[in-house]
């Protein structure tokens, strides 16, 4: 190994900001956070979506789960049962005949739960906007947190949607703590 100049002394210091509390001042290497934020961090890092692919967007959703654009690195494991999942990614056209089952599945999911409307059909009816049997957007049936536009949205767009949902979870936790 070659000599790389002079050796440098490294000390662990406080950084730029004043430590906030007695605990921070006494134990400077310890990170503190509110419990809501910690729990939200845990929830967002391990979102388990219920596999709810209805139509074409389901194929892009599958592509996003697979090896090329991996979603497992975000902690996302597709889970078939609604009773153990956190997120419902509604991927595809919502037809009036399917509205009842969607509502049932949403109610079977335990709190806290979120919904991502993927694709333009789930957002507002999409290319079938004048059809007699299509619900113009899944938000007529269940409350939606994140809308991902596209027909179908690219895997990168869906990843962006999921990361936005993660930001939203953290933001909600921070705001809940402030009240």
């Amino acid at each position: 190994m070659e000599e790389r100049g002079t050796s440098v002394e490294i000390t662990i210091g406080q950084g730029n900001s004043e430590p906030r509390s007695l605990l921070n001042r006494s134990a400077p290497g310890v990170i503190t956070a509110k419990s809501e934020e910690l729990i939200a961090m845990a929830r967002k890092s391990s979102l388990w979506p219920m596999t709810f692919g209805l139509a074409c967007c389901a194929i892009e959703m599958m592509s996003t789960y697979m090896a090329h654009h991996d979603l497992d690195r975000f902690g996302i494991v597709p889970w078939p049962s609604p009773r153990q999942s956190d997120v419902m990614i509604v991927a595809g056209t919502v037809v009036k005949k399917m509205a009842e089952p969607i509502k049932l599945l949403y109610e079977q999911m335990p709190e806290p739960k979120w919904v991502i409307a993927m694709g333009s059909c789930a957002t507002n009816g999409g290319p079938y906007y004048r059809s007699y049997s299509v619900v113009m957007g899944v938000d007529h049936i269940i409350p939606v947190d994140v809308y991902v536009a596209g027909c179908p949205p690219r895997p990168e767009a869906l990843m962006d949607g999921i990361l936005s949902l993660q930001d939203k979870i953290m933001q909600d936790a921070a705001e809940r703590g402030k009240k």
């Binding site: 209805l54 139509a55 056209t93 037809v95 399917m98 089952p101 004048r130 059809s131 007699y132 049997s133």
Partner: peptide, 22 residues
């Protein structure tokens, strides 16, 4: 019938070039 979107009826109201997308 859980994905019946009415494509055939929609086709009757669109121009030929628009039907390719359907």
């Amino acid at each position: 019938g859980y994905l019946h979107r009415g494509s055939e009826k929609l086709c009757e109201n669109e121009l030929y070039v628009q039907i390719v997308t359907l």
